[in-house]
C-alpha cells in the first residue's frame, strides 16, 4: 500500500543526460520498494528532446543549424513528440508507483495536469485541459507539456512548465506536432517577472494535494544519488 508520503527536491540547473540517469536510479530504487514516490524539480540547459515514436519529423531546421547554435537533440524513450527545455522552464519528473497509487496511465496523466492547473491557480492563472491535446493550456496557448514513460508500473519523465524561458527556441520545432506560436509562458501570460523558484513551493503543495501524499524534503536522497552518478 501507499506509504502516504513523497519526497520532493528542487535541484536547480541539471544537464539532461545527468537528470535522465538520476531518474533511472530512482526508478530502480522505487521498483525495489526502497524509496517512496519522488518528485524531481529542475531546469535544463537548452536541449531538444524527441519522443520514443515520434518527434524527429517535427524538427524544422537542419541538425547543422542546431549544432551551430549549441543545441543538442536527445532521443528519449518517453511518450509524445519533440519538445524544448531550457533555463526558465520548470521541469518535473515524478517517480511514482502506479501500482501503489492504484492508478492507470490515463488517470496519472490527468493528475499531472491537475497538479499544474492547481499550481497556476495559486498564481491567479486559470489553466485548463484541451481534449486530445494533453498538457495544460491557458486560453488557446499551451504553457505546460507532458510526456512520460512507465517501467514495471513506475513512472519517469514528466512535465515541463514554461515560467520565464525564452520561447524563441520553440521556433525550431513543431512542439508535440503543434505550431510553435502556441507555446506561452507564465511571464507572458501574467505580464510580470516571475522566477522559477517562486513556482516550486506551489507545485510541491499541489502535488501533495492531488496525489494525497504528505510532502517530505528529498534533497538528501537526490544529492546523494547525484554524487554517486558523478563519481
Amino acid at each position: 500500500m501507499s506509504s502516504g508520503k513523497y519526497l520532493a527536491s528542487y535541484l536547480g540547473n541539471v544537464p539532461y543526460d545527468l537528470a535522465l540517469k538520476l531518474q533511472q536510479e530512482l526508478v530502480r530504487a522505487r521498483m525495489g520498494g526502497g524509496i517512496p514516490d519522488v518528485l524531481l524539480l529542475l531546469q535544463h540547459p537548452p536541449v531538444f528532446t524527441v519522443g520514443r515514436f515520434r518527434g524527429e519529423e517535427d524538427i524544422a531546421v537542419s541538425p547543422e543549424l542546431l549544432a551551430q547554435q549549441g543545441l543538442a537533440v536527445f532521443h528519449t524513450n518517453r511518450g509524445g513528440g519533440v519538445t524544448y527545455h531550457g533555463p526558465g522552464q520548470l521541469v518535473g519528473y515524478p517517480i511514482v508507483s502506479l501500482k501503489e497509487g492504484r492508478l492507470g496511465v490515463r488517470q496519472y496523466i490527468w493528475r499531472l495536469e491537475e497538479v499544474v492547473v492547481n499550481t497556476l491557480l495559486r498564481l491567479g492563472i486559470h489553466g485548463h485541459r484541451v481534449r486530445g491535446y494533453p498538457g495544460v493550456w491557458v486560453g488557446d496557448r499551451k504553457v505546460c507539456s507532458i510526456g512520460i514513460r512507465v517501467e514495471r508500473c513506475v513512472t519517469m519523465h514528466g512535465f515541463a512548465l514554461n515560467v520565464n524561458n525564452d520561447l524563441t527556441n520553440f521556433e525550431y520545432i513543431r512542439p508535440c506536432g503543434l505550431r510553435s506560436e502556441v507555446m506561452t509562458s507564465l511571464r507572458e501570460l501574467s505580464g510580470e517577472a516571475i522566477e522559477v523558484t517562486a513556482v516550486v513551493a506551489g507545485l510541491v503543495r499541489s502535488f501533495a494535494e492531488v496525489f494525497g501524499l504528505k510532502y517530505e524534503p528529498g534533497d538528501k536522497l537526490c544529492l546523494a544519488t547525484l554524487d554517486v552518478l558523478n563519481g
Binding site: R52, F53, G79, V105, R106, Y108, I109, P134, I146, I148
Partner: peptide, 11 residues
C-alpha cells in the same frame, strides 16, 4: 514490445 497512449510509453 512497447505501446504509446496519451503521451505515455509503456512496456
Amino acid at each position: 514490445g512497447e505501446i504509446e497512449s496519451v503521451k505515455a510509453v509503456s512496456d
